[in-house]
Every structure is written in C-alpha cells, then in structure tokens.
Write a protein that binds this DNA or RNA. Sequence first.
DNA 1: TGCCAGGCCGGGT
DNA 2: ACCCGGCATGGC
Length: 224
Amino acid sequence: MGKRETGKSLILIYTRLLAAYGPQHWWPGDRPFEIIAGAILTQSAAWSNVEKAINNLKKAGALSSQALRDLPISKLAVLVHPCGYYNAKAAKLKAFVKWLGEHFGDNLDRMFAEDTVPLREALLKVFGIGEETADSILLYAGNIPVFVIDAYTRRIIDRIGLKPKGNRYADYQLLFMSNLPLDSRLFNEYHALLVALGKNVCRKVRPRCKECCLREICRQSIRS
DNA sequence: TGCCAGGCCGGGT
DNA sequence: ACCCGGCATGGC
C-alpha cells in the first residue's frame, strides 16, 4: 500500500471509530500536572484504579511538584496504592518532580517550550518514563503533536494489515506521523479511540470471531 | 479462579 | 536487538 493510500486508510479508520465510539474526552479540563501524574500512574493499570489514586493525591493536596517533593515516599506510596505497583510508582513520581524542579523550576510552560525532540530525550532519561509515557505527557499535557503508541495500537495495526517493517515503538509511531497531519487534537482523539476499540478486540487472533468489532470497523475501512 | 489493565526497569543473552 | 522476571491492585 502506497503512502497516500495508507494515509487515507488511517483517516477513514479514525472517522469510523469516531462515529462508533464518539469523542473520548481524555483528560479534558485537567491541569497539565495532573495529566502527567495520571500518565505515570496509568502504566499497566486500569484507569478506574488510577482515578482513586489521583483522588487520594487531590485530597492530600499533593497534586503539585513541590507538594510531591515534600511528601515522604512512604506516604506517597499509600496514596497511590489503589493503582498498583505503588512503591515503583511513588518512586517514579518522585523522580519526575525532582527533575522538573531542577531543570525547569517546576514550570511546565517552560518545559513544554523546549524543542520537542530534545525534550522527549530528556524525559526518557527520567526514571519511570518510557516512550509511551513520554509521548502521553507531550501530547496530552503539552498539546504537542506526537502520536502515542500502546499495546492496543500495535495489536490493531497488526491485525488490519498495516504492520510496519520493524517491531519498535518508533516504527509504529512513524506509520501515523508520516501519514497524517501533525495535529495534536487529531492525535489525542485518535489514540483514545484506538484504546476504546482495543478494549473490544480479543487479544489473541481467533478465526471467524464474530464479536470482534475490529473487523467491522477497520477491515471495512481498508477495503472501502 | 484466573486473566487483564492506556508500561518500565534491570539484567541476561 | 530482543527476552524475561519483577512490580501489585481491583474488576469482571
């Protein structure tokens, strides 16, 4: 499939997902700092559990860089307990706010004003921030047009026959970013819609799976 | 009961 | 460049 057709397929899939699931409203109206905390806390966790952790942080007045630094890590671990991996995630939050204070004086506007590529590299060096989390921060907290790749996205792309050459994160990311307009609103909604679809797609390929929404929405899109 | 959720790290090959 | 075990809760 040529580049132009790939782009058309990706747009068509987006259109159908939007029609099927509607706008997902991911992180609407939340402050950037809360979005970043959520991006870290949601790693391999159900969002319903992340909400509990975020609420605990809110009630404790701990949803700021300074407050998180002042909080002992053992107390922080108790607050984020509901979303699992609580010791690891407490350490990750600590690592991020330490870095944010040291490099940007806790000012997120200054952080996002950096050039995207070096900023992404810097984020990746922070303990607990990998590629998906870094891109979630850039896109959902910073409105920077980078496409977020997660396990659902890979699974869906593989099944509909758009699998890129390599298996690396960057290979999947380039599929979207070189074939779609670099629009943060589009990338925001698209990734959220892929997650919505992903929840309805069986993990393992099952021949003639009639329940699988993937087939209905995506395969038809490719053909039409 | 078991499987899974909007991953990442450190160590090994 | 992969592959693995560890990290852990709550919902279905």
